[in-house]
């Protein structure tokens, strides 16, 4: 008997929707609901295991092949740039990457090099490289909105869901960078060695989300 198919799920923002999806497909997620401190959780009757991890780690585990599949946001995929297959856009966890500044700030005016604060330096770099624009990027770990308010940066590149945080802090979106939603990713070798199982799973997922 082969090892169970292992799927890594992103903890937090996407967790609820992902579990809902798995349950919608008919998988028994009791162990995931009652996980306690356990990190690897069995899915009874499905020859499958669920691993809960932080978004960036989901990509690392899938890229190395220790997990066969994963559910992760496009935001983290864009930032990490791993070598894997990105088979399905799951549709939930929708938000966008956007460039925001203080309201009415003339971001594109003048000739000076602008400073951008972001939790996503690679996404930021790629965005401005495409524009042929030189910018200084400052990596911020927590609330990025602070940086322009404190005068550290001219703008931020960050995830925007509803825009409420921006509004409450007097910031506004200048330009959308990219649309983001949850994706089903698959290890490049797993897809080939366990093609039937994985394709069957992917088919079920696609049928479910298209319904």
């Amino acid at each position: 008997m082969d090892k169970p198919l292992r799927i890594a799920l992103t903890k937090g923002r996407l967790e609820k929707d992902t579990v809902q999806l798995l349950e919608g497909l008919g998988y028994d997620c009791t162990a995931v609901h009652e996980k306690g401190r356990k990190l690897i959780l069995p899915v009874p009757d499905a020859h499958m295991e669920v691993v809960l991890a932080k978004a960036a780690d989901v990509i690392t585990y899938v890229e190395h092949g220790v997990c066969d599949m994963g559910v992760v946001g496009k935001d983290t995929l864009m930032e990490m740039n791993g070598k894997l297959f990105e088979l399905v856009n799951l549709g939930f966890g929708k938000c966008k990457f956007a460039l925001a500044t203080k309201k009415d700030y003339p971001f594109y005016d003048g000739f000076g090099v602008k400073t951008i604060a972001s939790k996503y330096p690679n996404v930021t770099r790629a965005f401005f490289e495409n524009k042929g624009m030189d910018v200084d990027i400052v990596k911020i770990e927590g609330s990025v909105e602070l940086a322009p308010l404190l005068g550290l940066a001219d703008g931020i590149v960050d995830i925007v869901e509803t825009g409420t945080t921006l509004k409450e802090n007097g910031l506004a979106v200048v330009e959308d960078v990219a649309q983001v939603s949850a994706r089903l990713i698959v290890n490049t070798v797993s897809l080939k060695l366990r093609q039937q199982e994985i394709e069957a799973f992917v088919k079920k997922v696609e049928d479910y989300i298209n319904d």
């Binding site: 092949g65 070598k83 490049t188 070798v189």
Partner: peptide, 11 residues
């Protein structure tokens, strides 16, 4: 040509 072995995440 690519060759794959179970237990290694790349070719």
């Amino acid at each position: 040509i690519k060759g794959y072995l179970e237990g290694y995440g790349e070719e």
